[in-house]
């Protein structure tokens, strides 16, 4: 390439003008995208960063003074609710997402095996219904289902001679109830992705493995998993972002309680920003969440590439 360039005769003025015109044209065509990015991504990010360094409260006059890292110091004060929110967010991430991936793989495998069965496409469609429900609606619906006194879940447990559970009403069970609902809603999404990955694997590989006398676990760990690794990586990244954005379910069911046991970063940022209008603290919490999402996403990308 370099040699070609060196051997090339000098550009004529006309050719140079043509190249410049092409660059201008390119710039012209990508300008809307650049403007869009600057206006809706870069500017809000910089603005949010600026606000996070102030004591701005949009509902009170005479606020917005520069306080440096004051908000960040407050958020990371030992025993603060934000640290609890951070812990809970990680807890949900590290329990719910692996469970969704493992469960998602097995269910996808079932759908894959039964791919030629008549009517399976209908079943697949029915299975993904939870993803289509508005998060706030399923949050409310589940809070009715899991109402300890009047909900149907405890009624069923009692019919089965099992003891009723407090679900969202006890700090020991509330976070697991949240994780359970999250798994119920988002496993179908993981199933969809993994199933697409499985369907893309060439049948020749399985046939060749069978000829070589490979057992089922050889097929799973040496053919399927390596070939759907990237799909799993994408599922991990999307779900990670979802968990860090988890809001509706908490808003509709527990409001972060009891005793902060289901407090998550998004809900904390929402309360500070939209209940108390402490925009400075809300921005700081959101930015910390953003940095963590980027960091964890990079880790997952690296995992899926290896």
């Amino acid at each position: 390439m370099v040699r070609l360039w060196l051997n090339h005769r000098p550009f004529s003025i006309q050719e140079r003008l043509d190249v410049q015109a092409t660059s201008r044209q390119k710039l012209f065509f990508i300008a809307p995208a650049i403007v869009y990015l600057l206006a809706f991504s870069v500017f809000p990010l910089i603005y949010s960063l600026t606000v996070s360094l102030t004591d701005l409260n949009i509902a009170r006059p005479h606020t917005g003074s520069f306080i440096g890292a004051g908000n960040y110091i407050r958020l990371f004060t030992p025993g603060s609710l934000f640290l609890k929110a951070l812990y809970n967010t990680f807890f949900i991430t590290f329990i719910a997402i692996p469970a969704e991936i493992i469960l998602g793989y097995f269910i996808a495998r079932l759908f894959y095996t039964a791919r030629d069965v008549k009517g399976i496409s209908v079943l697949r469609t029915v299975y993904i219904i939870p993803i289509m429900i508005t998060p706030l609606i399923f949050g409310l619906t589940w809070s009715y289902i899991l109402n300890p006194l009047l909900g149907i879940m405890n009624h069923i447990l009692m019919l089965l001679h099992l003891s009723p559970q407090p679900w969202f009403g006890d700090p020991k069970t509330a976070i697991y109830s949240i994780i359970g609902v999250d798994i119920w809603q988002w496993t179908p999404f993981v199933v969809m992705l993994i199933l697409a990955g499985l369907l893309n694997i060439s049948q020749d590989l399985f046939e060749a493995a069978e000829v070589d006398g490979a057992s089922w676990y050889h097929k799973v760990f040496h053919i399927e998993v390596p070939l759907i690794k990237r799909v799993i990586g994408i599922a991990l990244i999307i779900r990670l972002m979802d968990v860090f954005r988890m809001f509706d379910l908490i808003y509709a069911s527990t409001k972060g309680g009891p005793g902060g046991s289901t407090e998550v970063v998004s809900f904390f940022a929402y309360r500070e920003s939209f209940n108390y209008y402490n925009t400075g603290i809300g921005s700081s919490a959101s930015l910390i969440a953003l940095v963590l999402i980027i960091f964890l996403s990079m880790l997952f990308v690296r995992f899926s590439r290896e």
């Binding site: 109402n147 006194l149 009047l150 407090p166 009403g169 006890d170 309680g257």
Partner: peptide, 20 residues
């Protein structure tokens, strides 16, 4: 009642209205 920690205005009213 069980889940008393998750009760707010509506839930406590529903619990009373349910007769329990």
């Amino acid at each position: 009642p069980p889940g008393a920690l998750s009760m707010a205005w509506d839930e406590r009213a529903q619990a009373f209205a349910s007769g329990r």
